[in-house]
Every structure is written in structure tokens, then in C-alpha cells.
Design a protein around this nucleic acid. Structure first.
Lengths: 252, 252
DNA sequence: GTTGACTCTCACGTTGCGTGATACCTTATC
DNA sequence: GATAAGGTATCACGCAACGTGAGAGTCAAC
């Protein structure tokens, strides 16, 4: 059986243009060209095309597909395994992005509806709901059990590291608000917040006058700290550092 | 404060070309142009850029970002939620592709009996359910066995934080051993361990070349960190920092 | 006043095709 | 054998988000 472009296209579910393109880049040449310059394909090319489409579906670039098909099983396995790695890191990446989106949604909601509870406990609420639904659908847990589990998780979330981080976030958020209001680092409202920051730092270690000021400088000078604080405001680090310096001078 | 292209680029971690491009498509115009046709940016643009980069990180197309930033919180939430949907379906899609790859690899190997360890090694809890379903479908494990396995996994998860800390400790210990053996920071053995350190750090955040190098410096310069690392070796921090710098240069 | 670092504006390259534009060929019908 | 419908061919631009020079002007420092 001989196929023209359109026939082969229909048979394999690609466009005519795609066949033209694959010919152009030398990925899939027709069996022969007619006197009219038409492309004619045979069974062999159909089989080849199916292989190409298989690897394409996996997201492997065409240039790699060209290599892969010509190579032996051993090389194929190696390529597939390395591609698998890429896909796995994509999974991780995407999972993190979804978390970030959930955070942002929660925060935006907090701004619009002032739901403190949701901001505090339900940071991952979107994601959580999906899970719960899945688990209950599968019959792994009853609705009652789920309720109990929810309480537990809530209890756990209030403890330890998470809670502390959330406290820190709250202080920073308040400071960022103060920045928006154009308050100065030495004004009473800001200094009150810095006192909270100082109390929060004491969770980890007790700074003296010098080291507390130094910590502020650290926030400014080291990129990863600076970048972390940029989520609140591009110059949050500088603002906080100045406020900390003043606090240290007056109180420590 | 006024920024030229390069200054703003460095500050925000994008390329000069990107700023040119954003100007060209009208996403981010400079505050004004000089007589020399230079672009000059102010605080306002910096703030704007931070927002742009945040949404870009989520994989939202620039054209949508333009809309999103101008819109109110309600619309932002809607856009984020719909983008979340896309990311979730990407997750499903990718999960399926990985399964297909695994199948193909197995077939190429001509090996129908896969090893349990191979299947379980390095699995993230997020993907666990997908694999469980797969394993049970294939008849490699019974539902009861799976239940038992689930308990174990749950056990790991409960002291997940401690486990992560232990992993970090193990890496540091191995690096300290390498130091004792007088291995250089740039030798393959040490670099392999640094890769592990990098992977470990990714539990918390994903550093790029600059920030990973910066983290190494931080280890040296900040007393708290330095003291912490002295438990392994008096100059552990310096050794690690140098090894991290090399790793970042070569790999990031 | 001479570097060296920085800036500008083109303009092409990347990936995998989609979408015409324009012209030639084949097949069926009248 | 004319005509219309439908298939085929070769350009060639377009997209998304910039990277990467090329060539030329500008700024700050020694």
C-alpha cells in the first residue's frame, strides 16, 4: 500500500504540514518522490512514524528522537531513563508551584475577606480538599474518620516549627503593611513590631545589641535572605535592618 | 533611587535583554528615557518587576501577566485558580507519561519481573497513590500488603523533619571524613557529596548558582552557622563553602 | 585621553509546527 | 474536452520568550 501525505496524515493523526516538516528536517523521508514531486509513503514509513509519535508523546525533542530510533535498545533505555528524570523533576517543580499558588490565593483572600483562620490554618486548603475527596472516594476513610484526622492535623500544625514560621510571617507582614503606609523605621508603631521580631528571634538565640544589628545587616547583604524578604517588599530587608538598628540602640 | 538596565537586572536576577524585551512589548516601561536613549527605572518599576517575576515563576504567560497585574484581587484569584487547574492536569499527564516510560523500559529490558526496591526507591508521597494503584493493578502486591506498606510510609512521614535532619547530618559526616582523608574540594568524591548536599538543600528551597555560592559564604561568615559546623571540623564551613562554589560553577 | 564597562538598536536563531498565499496536478462529472 | 473540486508543492511569516552576537555610541575612571 502506498500513501500520499493526506492519507498518511489521517491514518496517523498528524497534519500534512507535520509530514512536510519531518521530511524537511530529515526525520521521516517518504519512500520516494513522484515526477510531480508528490511524496509517497509505504508501510515502512508508517511504522517509523508511529515510533516517532510515541516518543513525541513523551515530550522528547525531535532531534533526540532521530538519534533514539537509530540506536539500539541499550541506548534507548538510557535516553528514556534520563528523560524520566526530567519528567520527575518537572513533577516536583509543578507541585511546588501549586503550593505557591495556594499560598497566594489564601493571602489574596485574606486581603479581600479578612479570613484569618483560613490564612492561618488553611494555607493548603485547596490541595487538602482534593486529597480528602480522593481518600473518601476510595473508601480508605469515612467522613467521620476524616473529621478526626482533620482535628489532629490542625493540632499538629499549631505546634512547633510551622507555628513559629507562621508567627514570623505575621510579623513581617505587619512590617510590610507599615512600609506601605510610609511609616518610618523609628516610629513607635514600627518599633513595636520590631520588638515582636526580636521576641521571635529569641526562639532561636538571644542577640545582644551588636549581634541584633549585625543580623539586620546580614538580611541586607546576603542574597538569599534579601530574596526571601522581597516577597514582602523589594526593600523590606533594608527597612527592617534600619528598624532593628534603632531598636538595638535604644533597647539592647 | 534610579536604576540603569544592568543595575535593575542584577537586582532582580533577570537579563538586560529581558528588560529590553519587556519594554518592547510594553510589559514594563522605564520611568523615563535619557537624552542618550538610556532606560532609567525607579522604585515603582522595581516593584512592578517583582510582581511580574512572581507570576512568571508560576508559568503564567506574559500576556496574561499584563492583564493580571492591572486587575483586582478577585480577578487575580480567578486567574490563579484556573492556572492551578492547568498545572494539576499537567501533573496527571506527566505521571501517566512516567508510567508509560517505565513500561517501555521494562519491555526493552525484556524483564517483566521488576524489583520491589527499584519501584519504591525515592518515591515521593505525592505520587505514592498513583504507583500503588499501578502496583496493585499489575498484581505485584495484594491490597493487604499495600496496607502494611502504607503504615510504614506513614511512620516515616511522622518524623519527616527529623529524618531530613538526619540526612543532612549524614552528608556532613561524609564530607568531614573526606576532609580527614585530605581530599580536595574539587575532586570527584567530594563533588558527589556536594551534589547530595545540594539535593538536601532542595528540601527547603532551590538555589541557583549565585545563591548556592552565597549560602556557602554565609556558612563561613555567620557565627551561628560556623559554630554549628565546627562540630564536624574546625574549618568545615570553609571547606564546604569552597566545594559548593565549585559545584555551583560547574553544575548550576 | 584612553581604556573598559556600559548602553543602544537591529536582527537572526531557537522548537514544532499553524496558517495562509500562490501555483500546479489529478480525478470526477458534464 | 472543459470545468470544478480537492490534493499537492514550495515559499515564508508567525508564535513565546528571550539568547546571542554585531556594530556603534556613551559614561566614568585613571
Amino acid at each position: 500500500m502506498t500513501y500520499t501525505v493526506k492519507k498518511l496524515a489521517k491514518l496517523s493523526g498528524v497534519s500534512v504540514r507535520t509530514l512536510h516538516f519531518y521530511d524537511e528536517i530529515g526525520l521521516l523521508k517518504p519512500a520516494y518522490y513522484g515526477d510531480n514531486h508528490y511524496r509517497y509513503y509505504e508501510e515502512e514509513q508508517l511504522l517509523m512514524l508511529q515510533q516517532i509519535l510515541f516518543y513525541r508523546k513523551l515530550g522528547i525533542p525531535l532531534s533526540d528522537i532521530q538519534r533514539i530510533i537509530a540506536s539500539d535498545d541499550f541506548d534507548k533505555i538510557k535516553t528514556l531513563e534520563s528523560h524520566r528524570q526530567i519528567l520527575e523533576s518537572n513533577l516536583d517543580q509543578t507541585t511546588k508551584l501549586i503550593k505557591t499558588i495556594d499560598n497566594t490565593i489564601a493571602r489574596l483572600r485574606g486581603n479581600t475577606t479578612m479570613k484569618d483562620e483560613e490564612l492561618f490554618y488553611g494555607l493548603e486548603s485547596e490541595r487538602q480538599k482534593g486529597y480528602e475527596k480522593y481518600i473518601i472516594e476510595k473508601g480508605w476513610m469515612s467522613e467521620a474518620e476524616m473529621q478526626k484526622s482533620r482535628e489532629q492535623v490542625k493540632g499538629w500544625k499549631q505546634d512547633g516549627f510551622r507555628k513559629i514560621m507562621k508567627e514570623g510571617d505575621a510579623v513581617n507582614q505587619a512590617l510590610a503593611d507599615a512600609m506601605q503606609k510610609k511609616l518610618k523605621p523609628d516610629c513607635p508603631e514600627v518599633q513595636k513590631l520590631v520588638r515582636m521580631h526580636y521576641e521571635w528571634i529569641k526562639n532561636f538565640w538571644i542577640p545582644n545589641r551588636e549581634s541584633y544589628t549585625g543580623l539586620g545587616n546580614l538580611y541586607c547583604e546576603h542574597p538569599e535572605f534579601h530574596r526571601f524578604f522581597e516577597q514582602y517588599h523589594p526593600h523590606f530587608a533594608e527597612f527592617l535592618a534600619e528598624a532593628m538598628r534603632i531598636f538595638a540602640e535604644r533597647e539592647l
